[in-house]
C-alpha cells in the first residue's frame, strides 16, 4: 500500500508503510519549519504516551519513523494512533520545550580541520571568512543522526552547498566539526565519515556513563567559537554542557 494522506488544520500528513515493524510519517505543509515542528511534536507525543508495543520514534526534518513490535501491535493500529496524536496536537498546538543553549569551542584548520582550505577554495572565500561565517550563526539542532546521536544542524551561510569527500575517511575523530551540503554537525564518537572536517572541539560530546549519552535534544541551540590550538588541551576531560 502506498501513502495514506490525512489533513488536519495544521498540516497534511502522508503515512507510508515501512515494513512490518515501522511506519514513515511525512509532514507536507509546504513550510520546512512547520514540518519540522510537526514531526518532532508528534515524536514527543508518542514518547510521552508510552503505548505498549511502540518502541520509539525517530524524527528528522520532515519525517518521523515510528518503530513498533509487530507481535504486540500492528502497522494498522500504529497508523490509527499516529492520527490520534495529530488530532491531539491540532488541539493543543505543536509544543516544543524551551531551547537550551550550548557553546562549543573549536580549533579550526590544520590537523584539527584538514578540509578547511578545500572548503574555503570551493566557496570562493578566504579561510578567515569561512571561520567567521561558521561562528556567526546560532544553529538549531534539527535532529539526532548517525553516528551516536550527532547533532544535525542547518549549515552556515555559505554561497554554495559543500560537496562530500569523494573518498570518505575510514575514521574521523570524536569532536570533529564538519560541514556538507547545507548542513553542519559535530561527531560525538569516532566513526567513518564523508563530510568536510573544518575543525575540532576539545569537549567530550558523548558520555557513555550517562543516559541518554548526549546532552542536547532536537530544538536546542548551539554556537561555535574559535580557540587557538594551544588552548585545546585546557579543555581535556570537559563535557559539552548547556549554558546555565
Amino acid at each position: 500500500m502506498a501513502a495514506t494522506t490525512t489533513t488536519t488544520s495544521q498540516t497534511t500528513l502522508d503515512i507510508y508503510e515501512s515494513g512490518d515493524a515501522a511506519l514513515r510519517v511525512v509532514a507536507r505543509s509546504g513550510d520546512a519549519e512547520t514540518n519540522w515542528a510537526t514531526v518532532h511534536s508528534l515524536a514527543g507525543w508518542l514518547a510521552a504516551t508510552g503505548v505498549e508495543g511502540i518502541h520509539g520514534a525517530v524524527p528528522t526534518y520532515d519525517s518521523v519513523l515510528v518503530e513498533f513490535d509487530p507481535y504486540l501491535t500492528s502497522a494498522r493500529q500504529v497508523r490509527a494512533f499516529v492520527l490520534l496524536g495529530m488530532r491531539q496536537l491540532d488541539f493543543v498546538g505543536t509544543t516544543l520545550r524551551e531551547p537550551r543553549r550550548f557553546e562549543v569551542p573549536v580549533v579550526y584548520g590544520g590537523d584539527y580541520g584538514p578540509d578547511l582550505d578545500r572548503v574555503a577554495e570551493h566557496q570562493g572565500l578566504d579561510v578567515e571568512d569561512v571561520i567567521a561565517r561558521h561562528t556567526a550563526k546560532t544553529y538549531v539542532i534539527r535532529c539526532l543522526g548517525a553516528p551516536a546521536g550527532s547533532p544535525m544542524m542547518d549549515g552556515p551561510d555559505f554561497p554554495v552547498p559543500v560537496p562530500r569527500l569523494k573518498d570518505p575517511r575510514l575514521s574521523v575523530p570524536a569532536g570533529a566539526v564538519s560541514v556538507a551540503g547545507r548542513q553542519a554537525v559535530i561527531a560525538p564518537a569516532v566513526a567513518p565519515g564523508g563530510w568536510c572536517v573544518i575543525g575540532q572541539t576539545p569537549l567530550t560530546v558523548l558520555d557513555a556513563a550517562r543516559e541518554p549519552l548526549v546532552p542536547y535534544v532536537p530544538g536546542d541551540e548551539l554556537r561555535f567559537y574559535r580557540i587557538p590550538a594551544e588552548d585545546f588541551g585546557n579543555f581535556a576531560g570537559q563535557f559539552l554542557e548547556a549554558r546555565p
Binding site: 515494513g19 515501522a22 514513515r24 525517530v58 528528522t60 518521523v64 543522526g145 553516528p147
Partner: peptide, 29 residues
C-alpha cells in the same frame, strides 16, 4: 533529506551493490 530508516531497508547506494540494512544500521540516512 535525511530520514529515519527501518531495519531491513533495502537501498541502492552505489552502482556495485544492493545494501540491506540490519540491526546495526545507522538510524538516519
Amino acid at each position: 533529506l535525511s530520514r529515519g530508516v527501518p531495519v531491513g531497508a533495502i537501498e541502492v547506494p552505489s552502482r556495485d551493490e544492493l545494501l540491506v540494512l540490519h540491526r546495526g544500521r545507522g538510524v538516519t540516512a
